[in-house]
Nucleic acid binder design. Structure first.
Length: 596
RNA sequence: GCACCCGUAGUUCAAUUGGAUAGAAUGUCAGAUUCCGGUUCUGAAGGUUGGGGGUUCGAGUCCCUUCGGGUGUACCA
C-alpha cells in the first residue's frame, strides 16, 4: 500500500467531481508537510486554481472536505494560504508499517533491465592515492551500489593510467638513483616507493631548468631542453617501440604500484568488475580518427595533424592526432569508449571524474555523437568538486597533500581511542576489536566525504572528520548498535518482529508516527539517489532516520510498556529501523557494528 | 580575454528541483539519566541567502547586471 498513491487517486477524483476537470494523477505533486504544521502530506493548490476556477484557499478547502468524506485514510486536514495539509490516520500508518515490515521497503524495486557502467578511481601509476582520490573512489563505489539497489545491472570498471611521460619520469629517476632499492628491501609500500622517485625526478629536473635559465634561456626553452626531460621522452619512445629492457623495468615498477594500490583498495573497501589498462587501449582510437575523416566530421591540417571543429556548438577546435601521427589522450578515450560498449552494451555509462575535466567530457561526448554513436546519449560525466583543506588547496609541491593511507591510519587510531574510552567491548578479542576499529574509521571517513553533494566543492577538516558526534557515520552506527542491544534483549524475552499490525488500534505516539513516516520514505529516497547519482541523498536520509529513532528512544520506553502488543510493536519498529540503517549504509560502502 | 561552476547562521553543510516563518550539525550558553547503551535527548541565541534590478500568485532556486572565489581554455594526461 502506498499512501501517496491513494491520495493522488482521490485528488484526481475530487477534481473530476468537484470541478469537472480531468487531472492526471501524474500531474499531481505532493510534498512532505513542514514540521510546524499538522499533517504529513501537503498539496499545493496554487498551480491548480485555474482548473478549479476558485481561489487557492477555496480549492484547498473543497478538496480537503472531499477527501475527508470519501477517503478512509484521512484523519484531518487544514488549509493555510494555498497549502492543503493532510493528516493520515494512525490505523493507516500502522498498516503501512506492517507491510513494510513484511516486505522491506527496498525490496520493492523492480529490475529496470538497464545496464549501467560506472568508471571510477582511474589512478596514475606514478604516485600513491590522496584525499581527492578517496572522494572519487567512495563516490564511484557508492553510486554503483545505489544503482544496483535501484534495480540496474551495473559494471564497475577502473581505467588505470599506466603509461605515458609521467610514468617514464619515475622510471628514469629509478634508473639513475635507484641503486638496488625495492619496496621489499626498504619496507616502503609499493605506490609510495614509486612516488618517491617521481618526486626525485621533479627535483632534479627543476635544478637543471634553473641552471639553464641562469645561462640566459627563457623558462619555456629551459623546460623543453633540460637533459632529464629529453631522456624521459627518449624512454617513452623506447617503451612505445617495446624495447625489452624498458618494458621490463616498466612492468617491475608498475607491479610494485599495483601491490600498493590493491592494499589501499582493500583497506577502503572498494572493488571493480573489470580493470582496463591504458597501455592496452592507447593505440585504439586511431581507427576512429580515420572513420571521422572519411565521414567528414574531422579534418586534416597541412602538417598532417587531425582536428575536429566544434565552434558551431560553442566549443573550440580540438586536436585528435598529432602531426607525427601519434595519439593524444582523447584519441585513446574515443577508442576506449567503443571498446567499453562492446564489452558491456550499456544503456548508461557514468564517468566519475573531477570537475576540472568538465570541458573535456563535453568535447568527448559531443564528438562521439557526431560520429553517430548512439550509446553516447547514455554517457554521463559525474563531475565532482575538489576537496580543499582548511589551509587552502592541496598542493603536492607544498607538501600539503593528504595521503590516503596516512589518513586511514589516523582514523583507525582515533576509532581505537574513542572506543576504549567508552569501554563497551571488553569481551572482544584482538581480531574483533581490530575489525570494529576498521568499521568505525571507514564509517567516519566515508560518511564525511559522501554526505556532501558530489557536485560541490568541499572542505575537509581533519579535526571534524574524526568527530563521532552530530551528523557523522559513527552517530548512525551507534544508533544501529544501540538497537542491536535492544533486539538482543527482545530475543531473550522471546519477542520477535514478525507480526502484522494491520488490525491493531491505538493512538500512536508522535515519535512513533514520525519514525514510521520516515521509514516509509526510504524507497523514494533510494529512487531519488539513483536518479541523481547522489549518495548524499542517502546519507542525509539516514541522518534523519537515526535522529528520528533516537527521539523515539528517549520519549518512549520499550520493555517497560505494559501493553504487550504495543511493546512488541516498538521492538518491530526498532527492528525495521536497524534493517533500513544497515541497508542504506551498505549503499555508502559502510558497515554497521552490533556492538561498539 | 573567453567559457563553465560556486557565494546560504561565527564555521561546515541542507533546503523535496519555483512553494509556507530558509533547516541541521558544530561551537557558545542553559537543562535531561531510579529506565532498553549519554558517541544520546530537550531548549536558547545566531540570517538583508555577496550586492542591485527583473520575471509571477510565490525566487536561495529562473533571467540580467555587479562584486568576490574556483576551474578550464596544450601537438599534457
Amino acid at each position: 500500500m502506498n499512501v501517496e498513491f491513494l491520495l493522488k487517486e482521490s485528488i484526481t477524483k475530487a477534481f473530476m467531481e468537484l470541478f469537472g476537470h480531468n487531472l492526471d494523477a501524474e500531474e499531481i505533486k505532493l510534498q512532505p508537510t513542514r514540521k510546524d504544521f499538522k499533517g504529513s502530506h501537503t498539496f499545493v493548490t496554487f498551480p491548480y486554481a485555474r482548473f478549479s476556477g476558485k481561489s487557492p484557499v477555496e480549492t484547498g478547502e473543497l478538496i480537503g472536505s472531499y477527501l475527508k468524506d470519501k477517503s478512509r485514510i484521512l484523519a484531518s486536514f487544514n488549509v493555510i494560504n494555498g497549502f492543503l495539509n493532510l493528516e493520515i490516520n494512525d490505523a493507516t500508518w500502522l498498516r503501512v508499517f506492517g507491510m513494510n515490515l513484511k516486505t522491506n521497503p527496498w525490496s520493492k524495486t523492480k529490475p529496470t533491465g538497464k545496464k549501467i557502467m560506472v568508471e571510477y578511481s582511474s589512478p596514475n601509476t606514478n604516485k600513491p592515492l590522496h584525499l581527492g582520490h578517496l572522494r572519487n573512489n567512495f563516490l564511484g563505489y557508492s553510486v554503483a551500489e545505489i544503482l544496483k539497489a535501484a534495480g540496474n545491472e551495473v559494471m564497475k570498471v577502473n581505467l588505470v593510467n599506466d603509461r605515458g611521460i609521467h610514468i617514464c619520469k619515475s622510471m628514469l629517476a629509478y634508473q639513475k638513483y635507484g641503486d638496488a632499492e625495492s619496496p621489499e628491501n626498504t619496507g616502503i609500500k609499493g605506490d609510495h616507493f614509486i612516488g618517491k622517485y617521481y618526486v626525485k625526478f621533479d627535483r632534479e629536473y627543476k635544478k637543471e631548468v634553473d641552471k639553464l635559465i641562469s645561462k640566459g634561456l627563457t623558462k619555456e626553452q629551459a623546460s623543453l631542453q633540460a637533459p632529464l626531460i629529453l631522456e624521459a621522452k627518449e624512454l617513452l619512445k623506447k617503451w612505445e617501440e617495446k624495447d625489452p629492457v624498458t618494458v621490463d623495468l616498466w612492468q617491475k615498477m608498475n607491479g610494485w604500484v599495483y601491490e600498493g594500490f590493491n592494499k589501499t583498495y582493500q583497506d577502503i573497501g572498494v572493488d571493480f568488475d573489470k580493470i582496463y589498462y591504458e597501455s592496452d587501449t592507447y593505440l585504439l582510437g586511431k581507427e576512429v580518427v580515420d572513420e571521422g575523416l572519411k565521414k567528414g566530421v574531422f579534418y586534416r591540417k597541412d602538417d598532417g595533424s587531425v582536428w575536429v571543429d566544434l565552434s558551431d556548438d560553442g566549443l573550440d577546435e580540438k586536436l585528435l592526432l598529432r602531426s607525427d601521427g601519434t595519439s593524444v589522450y582523447i584519441t585513446q578515450d574515443l577508442g576506449t569508449a567503443d571498446m567499453k560498449y562492446k564489452d558491456f552494451p550499456f544503456d548508461r555509462s557514468v564517468y566519475v571524474v573531477g570537475n576540472e575535466q568538465d570541458y573535456y567530457f563535453e568535447v568527448l561526448i559531443m564528438i562521439l555523437k557526431k560520429l553517430g554513436r548512439k550509446y553516447a546519449d547514455g554517457m554521463y560525466h559525474l563531475s565532482y568538486g575538489m576537496v580543499d583543506l582548511p589551509t587552502g588547496k592541496m598542493k603536492s609541491r607544498e607538501g600539503t597533500v593528504v595521503d590516503a593511507d596516512d589518513l586511514v591510519e589516523e582514523m583507525l587510531k582515533t576509532a581505537k581511542k574513542q572506543t576504549e574510552e567508552l569501554g563497551k567491548i571488553e569481551e572482544f578479542n584482538e581480531v574483533q576489536a581490530r575489525k570494529l576499529y576498521e568499521v568505525l574509521a571507514m564509517g567516519a571517513l566515508k560518511y564525511f566525504l559522501l554526505k556532501i553533494d558530489p557536485k560541490k566543492r568541499m572542505l575537509f577538516n581533519p579535526e571534524e572528520s574524526i568527530q563521532f558526534q552530530g551528523n557523522t557515520g559513527p552517530f548512525i552506527q551507534y544508533t544501529y548498535a544501540r538497537i542491536s542491544a535492544i533486539l538482543r534483549k527482545a530475543a531473550e524475552l522471546d519477542i520477535y518482529p514478525d507480526k502484522s499490525y494491520a488490525d491493531l488500534q491505538w493512538a500512536l505516539h508522535e515519535t512513533e508516527k514520525d519514525l514510521i513516516i520516515t521509514l516509509s520514505n526510504y524507497a523514494d529516497k533510494l529512487a531519488e539517489a539513483a536518479n541523481e547519482l547522489s549518495p548524499s541523498t542517502i546519507a542525509n536520509y539516514e541522518y534523519d532516520l537515526a535522529k528520528s529513532y533516537n527521539r523515539f528512544y528517549t520519549e518512549v520506553s520499550i520493555f517497560n510498556e505494559e501493553n504487550t502488543e504495543r511493546r512488541n510493536f516498538r521492538v518491530s519498529l526498532s527492528f525495521l529501523t536497524a534493517q533500513t540503517i544497515r541497508h542504506s549504509m551498505k549503499l555508502l560502502g559502510i558497515e554497521v557494528p552490533e556492538r561498539m
